[in-house]
Design a protein around this nucleic acid. Sequence first.
DNA 1: TTTATTATTGCAACAAAATCGCATTAAAAG
DNA 2: CTTTTAATGCGATTTTGTTGCAATAATAAA
Lengths: 124, 124
Amino acid sequence: MRRRNTPAKEAVLEVLKKAGKALNHETVQDNLSIDIDRATVYRVLNRFCDDGILHRVVAEDGKQYFAVCSKCDSEKHSDNHFHFRCTGCNTLECLPTPVQFTVPDGYLAESINCIINGRCKNCA
Amino acid sequence: MRRRNTPAKEAVLEVLKKAGKALNHETVQDNLSIDIDRATVYRVLNRFCDDGILHRVVAEDGKQYFAVCSKCDSEKHSDNHFHFRCTGCNTLECLPTPVQFTVPDGYLAESINCIINGRCKNCA
DNA sequence: TTTATTATTGCAACAAAATCGCATTAAAAG
DNA sequence: CTTTTAATGCGATTTTGTTGCAATAATAAA
Ligand SMILES: [Mn+2]
Ligand SMILES: [Mn+2]
Ligand SMILES: [Zn+2]
Ligand SMILES: [Zn+2]
């Protein structure tokens, strides 16, 4: 199933690259340079996640946030870092800080989802 | 607005106490000893959170999980610890491990939401 | 015990986030 | 240019959670 290059893909990725932070669907949609259907934007975002281009974080507001992967492999998402969600501007950024943790005996950790909520530099 | 004791409140709390872990709405509903309306269960859970009886965690599956507070004050929820969500039995537990973190200069941290996903001892 | 007050409930409607079915469109391979 | 099928648009649907409102019932007052 070879991927095709389309205006929708380019437009979505452009928005996320320009933002430099993770955005939720609504924010992506609002910043698109061309008109794309809602469902298509969702599908593009999901495909990018499958392909290791974006990674997805679910925040306390119940929404999915998408960010361009920097240290992620297309085989495996590296997301062992903290995320900071600003309640002011609805963005979410990957912090460099790695998350240190252990699990109880017999437990098996598969992935983590660590978010710090607050105000970013601009919104503080 | 003085709270009243009702069968619905008792039943919901009984389920959560017996579980000893955080459960989402659906799981609470499925384990009730009496028949209670969906909306009522949601309202009971929210009221318990307001009153500092339960605390709420939003997981990667986009659902809210509710757990009986142990170290929480009725004034302020103490939730600076990791949570473990088992993808096998759909439960979520508070781990004793506190979360260590720092935020970039100028950023203001207000709350955290840290979840480790994987398999619990029973489901590993 | 009886009555009054109003928190709580049930039910249906609603809202928001995300997904899905399906016919149509358009990348890109040949 | 033709063919193949990934990607799109559009509407319907699902899932999670909230809300309006009339009816019910817990609790305080009489
Ligand atoms: Mn990240
Ligand atoms: Mn907790
Ligand atoms: Zn901000
Ligand atoms: Zn389990």
